[in-house]
Simulated assay, not measured.
Amino acid sequence: MRAVYVDCDGTLLTLDCSYDDLFATACDAANIDPTPDLQAAYGERFFEAFESFHPDPYRAGMAAAVEAGDLDADPDTLRDAYVDAEVAAATPADGAHAALDAFDGPNTALGLLTNGVTEVQRRKLASVGLFDRFDAYLPSYAVEAHKPDPAIFAAAKDRLPADEYAYVGDSLEHDALPARAAGFLAVHVDTDADAGVVTVDGLDTLARSI
């Protein structure tokens, strides 16, 4: 039995706009000018809250922006507009459906392993019809461990018992290297690589990959 876990953002899903655009969309919903200072306040507080597993880092970030700009605005409204925009912008990466079809089979379990807020990641995957493709859904908020923490990879093994594991992700630092250290076959998705060329470090890795 093999378990294949896939990363979400940047691997399985992409966004059809920038994070700057998402912030601007949220501000537009409240008739606010999305100045760089407001965006910086949002981003700094969001990531601080996210890293510490604050229950609502999006709202925490928007509350910081409201305070920084001394704005007459509701952080909840801004949060909802931002999350809605992020969900709407989520798009399956090229080849996402075909890759999941190729991984799927009677001797393979599929898992989604992602750094993210549980409900937001779920909404993004569901919006493009991918959430139900997985046998296990493991966002970092569910185990209070963000990649590259070894704890999230250990939790992935506990969630899907298997004889061998693979992890597919776009980041060497947060996906491939910690997955390899945890005993997974690490597959690095590099969209800047030459199209149609697969590089392996040896025939033993190739044999495990097929």
Score class of each variant (00 low, 15 high):
residue 44 E to Y: 01
residue 163 D to M: 08
residue 196 G to F: 07
residue 76 D to R: 10
residue 19 Y to Q: 09
residue 209 S to W: 14
residue 77 T to I: 11
residue 186 A to Y: 13
residue 77 T to V: 15
residue 103 F to M: 12
residue 201 D to A: 14
residue 169 G to N: 00
residue 27 C to T: 01
residue 67 E to M: 08
residue 100 L to T: 12
residue 196 G to D: 09
residue 204 D to C: 03
residue 168 V to N: 01
residue 106 P to N: 01
residue 82 Y to S: 03
residue 105 G to I: 08
residue 3 A to T: 09
residue 182 A to V: 07
residue 144 E to H: 02
residue 180 R to T: 13
residue 167 Y to C: 03
residue 162 A to E: 10
residue 76 D to Q: 13
residue 55 P to G: 05
residue 128 V to T: 11
residue 163 D to A: 14
residue 57 P to E: 09
residue 34 P to A: 03
residue 25 T to R: 15
residue 98 A to H: 04
residue 58 Y to S: 03
residue 124 K to L: 09
residue 15 L to W: 08
residue 78 L to R: 04
residue 46 F to S: 01
residue 147 K to W: 08
residue 48 E to D: 14
residue 92 P to S: 00
residue 194 D to P: 07
residue 7 D to L: 01
residue 98 A to G: 07
residue 130 L to Y: 06
residue 210 I to R: 15
residue 191 T to W: 11
residue 71 L to W: 12
residue 146 H to A: 08
residue 176 A to L: 04
residue 41 A to R: 11
residue 115 N to I: 02
residue 75 P to S: 07
residue 157 K to P: 07
residue 104 D to S: 15
residue 26 A to F: 07
residue 22 L to F: 05
residue 208 R to F: 02
residue 146 H to L: 04
residue 74 D to A: 12
residue 172 L to A: 15
residue 175 D to F: 06
residue 41 A to S: 14
residue 57 P to A: 09
residue 171 S to T: 13
residue 25 T to C: 05
residue 53 F to V: 04
residue 93 A to Q: 12
residue 130 L to I: 03
residue 191 T to Q: 14
residue 123 R to P: 03
residue 33 D to K: 05
residue 30 A to S: 11
residue 204 D to Y: 06
residue 25 T to E: 13
residue 112 L to G: 00
residue 96 A to H: 06
residue 144 E to R: 02
residue 4 V to G: 11
residue 50 F to A: 10
residue 83 V to K: 11
residue 62 M to P: 02
residue 113 L to G: 00
residue 132 D to I: 03
residue 75 P to F: 02
residue 34 P to Y: 00
residue 154 A to E: 14
residue 126 A to Y: 09
residue 165 Y to N: 09
residue 113 L to D: 00
residue 151 A to S: 10
residue 161 P to T: 02
residue 38 L to Y: 13
residue 34 P to D: 01
residue 62 M to D: 06
residue 139 P to T: 07
residue 192 D to N: 14
residue 86 E to W: 02
residue 123 R to V: 02
residue 155 A to C: 01
residue 92 P to H: 02
residue 47 F to P: 00
residue 176 A to W: 08
residue 196 G to N: 06
residue 194 D to G: 00
residue 62 M to H: 15
residue 110 L to N: 09
residue 76 D to H: 10
residue 115 N to W: 05
residue 30 A to V: 09
residue 17 C to V: 15
residue 210 I to Q: 13
residue 22 L to W: 04
residue 183 G to T: 03
residue 142 A to D: 04
residue 146 H to Y: 03
residue 153 F to V: 05
residue 66 V to N: 10
residue 55 P to D: 13
residue 88 A to I: 10
residue 73 A to D: 12
residue 63 A to P: 00
residue 9 D to E: 13
residue 63 A to T: 04
residue 12 L to D: 08
residue 135 D to K: 10
